[in-house]
Each structure stands twice: as C-alpha cells, then as structure tokens.
Design a protein around this nucleic acid. Structure first.
Length: 577
RNA sequence: GCCCCUGUAGCUCAAUGGACAGAGCACCAGCCUUCUAAGCUGUUGGUUGAGGGUUCGAAUCCCCCCAGGGGCGCCA
C-alpha cells in the first residue's frame, strides 16, 4: 500500500522498517518517514527541510491508507506514521497466550542447536569469594537464557585442580595440619590453609625449596602425594558442590585441569611435527609464533607459549586439549562458549587460532565471552593471596540473616521454615541481581551496604511484586482463567502492563543473541515496577464485573511472566515475604 | 610501543542510529480504616570526557586527543 503511495507521488522506492511505537498508552507499530524524505531530496536534487517534509508525508500517507483491518487508529506524529492496534482485542490475545503457555510463555521454537557454556572454573584448594561469583552467575544465567531461547545447552565446569597453588596447599597441610579433617565450611577452611601457606612462604622464602621438592614428587607420581592430592581435591569439590547447591547452579559436565595435561602435551608434539610450533628447548620453551605462521606483517596474535622449557605443561597446554575434548564429547556442538574474565582475551584468541591453524576447523566455533572483574572500593582487585576478599559464605549468611530480620518484622506469623526459606530466596536473589543487571564489560564494585540493600532496583523488589500478585489471587478464591472480552476502557496502567508482557519473548531472544543478562534483569525490574504502579492505581477485588475478572486475569498473567523472568535469573519466587 | 575495555545527573547504572537522554540511591515534600508501605506519588538534578567528521537525524558509527583500567614468550 505504501508502495502504491510512493509510486503515485513519484517518490523514491525505499524499504520500510516497522518498529514498535515507544510506549505512549496505546500500542502499535510505526515507521519513520525521515529516510524517505531525505531520499526524495537527494533524488530530486531539492533542498528540503527534511523533518517538515517527513511530517507532510506522514500526514498524506495517513490519509492515503485509511485504517487497515486489525488496527484502530492511524496517526501521523512528528514525521512518524503510527498504526495503533485495536486495544481490547490485542490485550486479550496477550493474556490468553500467557495463561495458555504458562511456564513456556516467551519461549520461541526449539532451534536444534547445541551450545556449550563453560563457566565458573574455580581453583580447588582455595577459597570461593565474591570475585568468583561473577563467572558463576553470568554463566548460569546465560545458560538459562539460551536454553529458554531454544538452544540445547551443555553446562560445563573446568576446575583448576592442579598447579603451584595446590602444591603450596599440600605442603602446608602436610607440615602443619597433617591428619586434620575439614570444617563444616569446607571451602573457607581450605582457603585458610592456602592463605597460611602463602604467609609462611612470604615470611621465609627459603621454604621455596621444599615446595619445589614437593612439586617434583607430584610430577613423579609419588603415591603418598597423589593420594593426598586426591583426598584433598575431593574435599574442595564437595565444598564447591555445596556452594553451587546454595546458589541453585548445576553443571552437566566437569572437565579438570589435571586431565588435560597429557593430551595437551600430545597436541604440542603434533604442533611441533606440523611445523606450527617452534621447539626452542632446552634454551627456550615451545612456542607458536602465530603472526609468523600466518604471514602477518602487523603484530596481532603474537606468541603463545605452549610448553615450558622443562617440558611441563602450562595453562595454554591444557586449554589446547580442552578445546579438542569438548568437540570429541559433543560432535554436534554449534558453539563452544568460554565465560572467562576479560584479562584472558588474548590468551583465548591465541588458543583458538592455534587450533584452527592445526586444522581443527571447529575452533572457529569457539568463542570467549569476556566479563570484567569484581573489585573492592578503591579499585582493589579481590585476590586470595593478598587477603583482599569477601568470602561468599560470609556474604550469603549476612544477606540471609538481614533478610530474615525483615521477614520476621513484616510477617511474624509465617512458620519458621518458611521464614528461612524466604530469607534465603531474598538474600541470594539480592546477591545475584547486581551482577546480572550490569553490562559484561563493566567492573562491579562490591560494597557491603549496597549488596545488602533490599530496596529499589533489586531482586527483592521483583520478588515482592510477585508476592503481591499471589496475594490478590489467593484472596480472590476461584478464578475463571478464561480472559473475557474486554468491554471497558483499559487504564494506562493496565495497558502498560500488557505491553510489557507482550515484549518478553523479544527480550529473551535479544539477551540470548548478545550474551547479555542485563537485558533480562532490567526487564524483570520494569515488569515489577509497572505492576506496582498498577497495584496502587487499579483495585482488583473491590471492583465489579467485568473489570474484576479482566484484572484478575491480568494479575495472573503478570505473576506468570514475573515467575518465568525470575527463573531465567535463577532467583526464587517466594510465596510470601 | 602495540592491542582491548570504560568515561552519561552528587553516587551506582540504563537507553535495536530515531520521538522530550531514563531508573535506582541520596536529598526534600506527601501517601497505610481499602488486594502486604520490601510499596506509591511529587520536587530537585545533564555542554552524554574534549574536538572534528558521516547522516535528514549521533550518547550510539568513523577520526584524533584526554583520563582511568586491563593485556602483550615459559602466571593462571
């Protein structure tokens, strides 16, 4: 129809982009006529006032097309042509869809593509602090979003279970804590011994010799050391499982650093045989001069060290093997994502490129998803060795305790179990949310006060909106879950709420394609805010029909979408607060 | 020296190249006989680090500076 119009008026033929009208109380689609006006000016060599001409065109076009079926109103506004949907019909369709699809509302069709998301990668024999939380939460949330968006997601973990840090720990344990068993807070106890080892070494550098001796015993697979390593490693892993359980995070597959050592060395040999790697031993290490191999003049990939001069493996050695292992285990993997902090960007670029050069074509399907660190005020990086850490256990217990106090105050009649369950949901939600509602590329600065602030844009706000929905529905008793024809004029609050509900699926798709949890975190907040606005302006139970039934259905739909949204964020939706 | 990220309200952060750059916190003023006040309403607050360019239109894209952070051959 618009083509007819441009044809009749000798206007340039350009493609029309339809967008959603920024919300103004009445929804629909719109197109801007600025590009048409600009194209006209160019084609006819005219000097036009483009915005004015765009508005003229919008007015003429509005008259020309009249009101197409399914629409209620057509209006030119500031150079835009807006087509408004018929309110009542559109609103009802949205409600029906939510109430039919329930937990699946917002899910697009399955894509039949397998994606691996590797995240968390904690080091055994060390504490788990708030800095480690970001990869765990970002990865878990992305995995949830991608799964919801229709991908077959494989969640992978890759703990660092061997390395100098482990040897130091074993040394300290053997010498000062032999025979001791871990505390209830395993990870915290492991972390203490690691810190103690570092402290002792710093105080007396001569002890380094003992560490080297121990490393050698490990390298020669001294049964006593291997056994000690196996036992203590298991303690550490048990500690991690506890933490993941508390955070409601799970993994489908675990890869371990220690398992990649041998296959990594084999790949290095392969690289040497193929003349990709240069063996500079014994004077130097085994390296891949990637830029030279590719014949690049400008430095881009630089040099990757793949094996130490003494022949021992390093991180890169193991990463080469891991790339391969993943595609061996899952040959139909479309993508292999690595959720690792931004400092390792170059490292992963090098590893993937090296594997590609070696002929492993699926290396192109590997992608590093970088994120910035969690720091303490004053730009202090959290580091176990420096002792500049906030332990996760401490944060969780403090947040839960504070949440419990609020529950106690607001809702003293709840049973003790439910009080604690609610406190955990609120406390853990409050911890997770700030990491999700942040651009991956931005540093999170940890402040105790804001981490424990349950007001404003935070998880408890969203959970509270969910609870309010439930509260209304509970008091309403039996509800006919069949949205009636809407036979009254919807209030702006109702329209805005329905508008948001209808956008949920688009937000999920975008979050999944851009690997951005912030999209979903912000949307959840928008939903809650809009509902709270509805809550104060639109009474439900005290209204007569037909308003009461329509609003009850709207509340039910809102509650469902909030629930789906919170599930994507891995945050529990409590029944009472 | 080379590469990457960041710079938006006092603070923490948003904003598919498009309609008046929006929230939260903080501050101030209000709202609980009514579905839970972990809530709501209102007020205050901006040369989007600076300067060029592309475009009908730039916080967003390009160039060049400035400031902060990170990475760059045997750490992980």
């Amino acid at each position: 129809m618009i083509k007819n119009f441009t044809g009749q008026h000798e206007l340039p033929d350009i493609s029309i982009q339809w967008n959603w009208i920024p919300f103004s109380g009445h929804w629909g689609i719109s197109t801007s006529l600025f590009s048409l006006a600009a194209a006209e000016a160019r084609q006819k060599q005219l000097k036009l006032n483009v915005p004015a001409r765009a508005n003229e065109l919008a007015i003429q076009l509005a008259e020309f097309i009249g009101i197409p079926s399914g629409f209620e109103k057509v209006e030119p506004v500031n150079g835009y042509l807006n087509l408004y949907f018929s309110q009542a019909e559109y609103a009802r369709r949205v409600l029906v869809e939510v109430l039919e699809k329930k937990a699946d509302f917002g899910r697009p069709d399955r894509k039949n593509e397998k994606i691996m998301v590797e995240f968390s990668q904690p080091n055994t024999h060390k504490a788990f602090h708030v800095g480690h939380l970001r990869s765990a939460i970002l990865g878990d949330t992305l995995a949830r979003i991608m799964d919801f968006a229709g991908y077959d997601v494989v969640r992978a973990n890759y703990p660092g279970d061997m390395g100098l840090h482990v040897i130091k720990w074993l040394w300290c344990y053997q010498k000062f804590h032999a025979g001791e068993l871990p505390d209830k807070n395993i990870t915290q106890w492991m972390g203490k011994i690691y810190a103690e080892a570092n402290g002792k070494l710093e105080a007396n550098p001569d002890l380094e010799a003992e560490i080297r001796a121990l490393y050698k015993r490990w390298d020669q697979r001294d049964p006593e050391i291997v056994k000690l390593w196996e036992d203590t490693r298991e303690w550490s892993l048990q500690g991690f499982y506890q933490i993941y359980d508390t955070l409601n995070i799970h993994f489908d597959v675990y890869y371990f650093n220690s398992q990649m050592e041998k296959p990594g060395k084999e790949i290095v040999q392969e690289l040497i045989d193929k003349n990709i790697a240069t063996d500079e031993r014994p004077d130097g290490a085994v390296i891949v001069k990637i830029d030279d191999v590719l014949g690049l003049k400008k430095e881009q990939y630089r040099v990757l060290v793949v094996l130490r001069s003494d022949g021992t493996a390093l991180y890169a050695t193991e990463d080469l093997a891991l790339v391969k292992q993943k595609f061996n285990d899952y040959p139909d993997l479309k993508k292999s994502l690595y959720i690792v902090d931004v400092r390792q960007s170059l490292h992963f670029t090098q590893v993937f490129k090296t594997m590609e050069i070696a002929g492993y074509n699926w290396a192109k399907q590997c992608e590093h998803v970088p994120y910035e660190l969690v720091s303490l005020p004053g730009n202090v990086v959290m580091a176990s060795r420096e002792g500049t850490v906030v332990l996760l256990e401490d944060l969780i217990s403090e947040a839960t305790k504070r949440a419990y106090e609020v529950v106690q105050e607001k809702n003293p009649d709840l049973g003790e179990d439910q009080k604690w369950a609610t406190a955990r949901a609120v406390g853990i939600g409050a911890i997770k949310y700030p990491m999700q509602a942040r651009e991956n590329t931005k540093v999170v600065t940890f402040h105790w006060e804001s981490a424990l602030d349950f007001n404003g844009q935070a998880a408890p706000y969203i959970q509270y909106a969910y609870v309010r929905c439930g509260s209304i529905l509970k008091k309403a008793g039996n509800i006919d879950i069949n949205p009636p024809e809407i036979s009254y004029e919807l209030s702006p609050q109702e329209i805005q709420l329905i508008d948001l509900i209808s956008r949920f699926s688009r937000e999920v798709e975008r979050a999944a394609s851009e690997y951005r949890t912030i999209q979903i975190a912000n949307f959840a907040y928008e939903m809650a805010k809009t509902f709270n606005n509805f809550y104060t302006h639109c009474p439900v139970l005290s209204e007569g029909e037909p308003i009461r039934s329509t609003r009850l259905n709207l509340v039910m739909a809102t509650r469902q979408v909030l629930k789906n949204n919170l599930t994507l964020l891995g945050i529990t939706a409590p029944e009472a607060m």
